[in-house]
Design a protein around this nucleic acid. Structure first.
Lengths: 245, 245
DNA sequence: AAGTGGTCTAGACCACTCA
DNA sequence: GAGTGGTCTAGACCACTTG
């Protein structure tokens, strides 16, 4: 069995078996071998396939459930998460309405260009001096009113051919799934600023009005930066919500 | 053995053993039976004491490590976390300086009163119509400058005798540890407002200046609200930082 | 009734720390 | 070298879902 060999051969490395299993299974999801929403083989079949005990396989599967890659349900099976699903697509979206419900922003306009990363982009995305990226400029609206302007940057290396006329998902979580990129955590810096002329016009505010600035970097599962987004937001009655554990 | 009986007797409930163990061990920490910073017995001794297998005890201990109650280190042992330690005391504090370092605010003044919860306080702290609470008003400074005004409310039921002249830790994490309360997660709503007269004066701003408003509820490990804090903050060069997983 | 994940056991061996 | 937590195994039984 191929995968059996692959795992056995690496038994002499320092990395624990269950982490190697996690990587092997994640790879299958990333490559599209296991489709979003579909069931994967049960614990004991997988254990047999990889030549490990069921307990070790379980540890890998549990880990992946915590990473939002899988959902396990007693009596049903283990399923590949669809990152475009309602619960997951809004994962890195902390804006909420007065009622506490997550705000689902519509994209009003998008503009995309390709360029060489500037100093700030290189720092945020950990790129080299000649690396290229796609820049996207979007205006989002909510309840018919424009409420957010965002500048997004993603490395060309991770999203090859992104600029070539295909429709682009405005959600990084969905876009990453389409490109076989598994996402881990994101960090967001929240601050207050005064709207400059461009932002003010797009949001229908007076120049100098206070806006909330969201500066977010999304990482892959193994910690490499995937997307840098800076957004200016007319909060109005809404708020940003963070949970701390 | 006492604890042996206690666990065995509850084997017929639906709650999994490892969760019962978690509760029993957490209780020892809350009661001060196991002091912050001290080592607890090893896995197999604990398993023997409670009459369970080592694997089940391990599952409980691992869970508690994830809840910031314990720290386990290979070759050393398992230790009770000190919530007043540098890493943990700032757990619910998301403000950071320009360099990304957490801001440690000094308390400039505190004022404490006891009262019956008003409607908003009852909603946030899930209290009944006649429940009492302590209200605290604080001004915090950073780098010599006042930068935050906060109104804090905690139920009298959880912090009996808080108002009676003792020195009160300005950190809810530390205060909770002193009262034997184990904390779980916190939720914080971030918004923008204009400084009213009182806030403006305390922060040395013009009335109407934009300030960041932090509205935070801290919960116990089992989800009961412990503290409601509303804070007005002169951000300046600083920012709020959230991590999403 | 058959199949799934969830819990629990009893043991082995490894990696790390410290006296 | 003794003691700790970390990994891994091989099995049993339970709880839940579905046909």
């Amino acid at each position: 069995m191929l995968s059996d060999r692959a795992i056995s051969a690496s038994r002499f490395t320092t990395k624990p078996l269950y982490l190697q299993l996690r990587d092997a299974l994640a790879e299958r999801i990333a490559r599209g071998e296991w489709k979003p929403g579909s069931a994967i083989p049960n614990e004991s079949d997988l254990a047999r396939e990889f030549g490990v005990s069921a307990g070790t396989m379980r540890k890998a599967l549990d880990l992946m459930e915590g990473e939002h890659l899988l959902t396990r349900r007693q009596g049903r099976g283990t399923f590949v998460n669809d990152q475009a699903s309602d619960e997951l697509a809004v994962r890195f979206n902390n804006l909420r309405g007065p009622d506490g419900e997550r705000i689902l922003a519509q994209v009003k306009s998008t503009h995309i260009t390709e360029a060489i990363a500037n100093e700030q982009e290189r720092a945020r995305l950990q790129l080299g001096p000649h690396d290229r990226l796609y820049r996207m400029h979007r205006i989002r609206q909510h309840g018919g009113e424009p409420f957010m302007v965002e500048d997004v940057a993603v490395p060309v290396a991770l999203f090859p051919g992104l600029g070539e006329g295909k429709t682009i998902s405005p959600r990084i979580v969905v876009l990453a799934q389409e490109y076989g990129i598994l996402l881990g955590k994101a960090e967001e810096r929240v601050s207050i600023s005064e709207a400059d002329a461009g932002v003010a016009e797009a949001l229908g505010l007076a120049a100098g009005s206070p806006v909330m600035v969201l500066d977010r970097v999304v990482q892959t599962l193994d910690g490499r930066p995937v997307e840098w987004r800076k957004a200016w937001c007319n909060l109005a009655d809404n708020h940003y919500m963070a949970v701390m554990v």
